[in-house]
């Protein structure tokens, strides 16, 4: 029996398939403007990739911001529940999750059985989200996926004091004007974003071991900054970006 999860995030659409509690495959592509189109495509491409057809799939669960648009899904569930289920699937010992996605970040606490017990999300502000890092990468003319490595080479991380993305951007621009080293500015940006995310974790008193999920978990600079703030190592799965989709597939298998 094969189950599918589809996660429509603000930047990327993800799909995952599981069979007998093992991962069959995952796929990621940009979301673009049309949620349903993106969901259909990522799902079809994944079936092609794994040599499966629609009739092999028993149940589909959709999650993410675009979850309601996926009309062929059997059920829509929130990212919170799916990230919880996905993280537990990837590592059953996980008790806390930090998810930093494109337009929001969240902290999720799991109970002893691995069920979602509590969560906190960023308020209507981009600080501490993937978008924040994107805006900053643009201002600094660094490729987003290079940002983490560059930041790790800092010798004297800058201090970004604004918590607002717009203000932080102008702070960064004035640092550029002062010819502050790029790597130091980037390290400062990571720390500022990590500080925002750490507040969410503190709000719900998250316990370890903590897994970091979401696209931003691919950024080593951000991971280092968060580990420092949270005072513990973060577990990063190679499927960090697809965790929500995997969780959706897991939940589909339980329906």
């Amino acid at each position: 029996m094969i189950f599918a999860g589809i996660d429509i995030g603000s930047n990327t659409a993800k799909a995952a398939l599981i069979k007998d509690n093992t991962l069959v495959g995952t796929r990621v592509m940009p979301t673009g403007y049309h949620h349903l189109k993106a969901g259909t495509r990522v799902f079809e491409e994944l079936m092609q990739q794994t040599g499966l057809s629609r009739s092999d799939i028993r149940t589909v669960v959709a999650t993410g911001y675009g979850r309601a648009s996926i009309d062929f899904a059997d059920k829509a569930m929130t990212e919170i529940l799916c990230h919880g289920a996905g993280a537990c699937f990837l590592d059953p010992d996980i008790r806390g999750i930090i998810d930093v996605g494109g337009q929001d970040s969240k902290a999720i606490a799991l109970d002893d059985q691995g069920h979602v017990d509590n969560f906190a999300m960023n308020d209507k502000c981009a600080a501490g989200t993937g978008r924040f890092l994107e805006v900053m990468a643009n201002a600094l003319e660094v490729a987003l996926d290079q940002m983490g490595d560059v930041g790790l080479t800092a010798d004297n991380p800058a201090k970004i004091s604004s918590i607002c993305t717009v203000f932080a951007e102008s702070e960064v621009i004035s640092m550029i004007a002062r010819q502050e080293k790029r790597e130091n500015i980037i390290a400062g940006i990571h720390d500022a974003a990590a500080a925002r995310v750490a507040i969410l974790a503190a709000k719900i008193r998250i316990r370890g071991p903590i897994m970091m999920t979401g696209g931003v978990a691919k950024n080593p600079g951000m991971i280092a900054a968060l580990e420092k703030r949270l005072n513990q190592p973060l577990i990063i799965s190679p499927y960090c970006q697809e965790t929500g989709a995997i969780g959706a597939a897991v939940l589909a298998s339980r329906m």
């Binding site: 911001y65 569930m77 929130t78 919170i80 529940l81 979602v116 017990d117 969560f119 999300m121 209507k124």
Partner: peptide
């Protein structure tokens, strides 16, 4: 923010139901 509110309420209700 409607979509943020939706996600929060739905996730909360998932926990309540569980």
């Amino acid at each position: 923010s409607e979509s943020q509110m939706e996600t929060r309420i739905d996730a909360f209700m998932e926990i309540v139901k569980h």
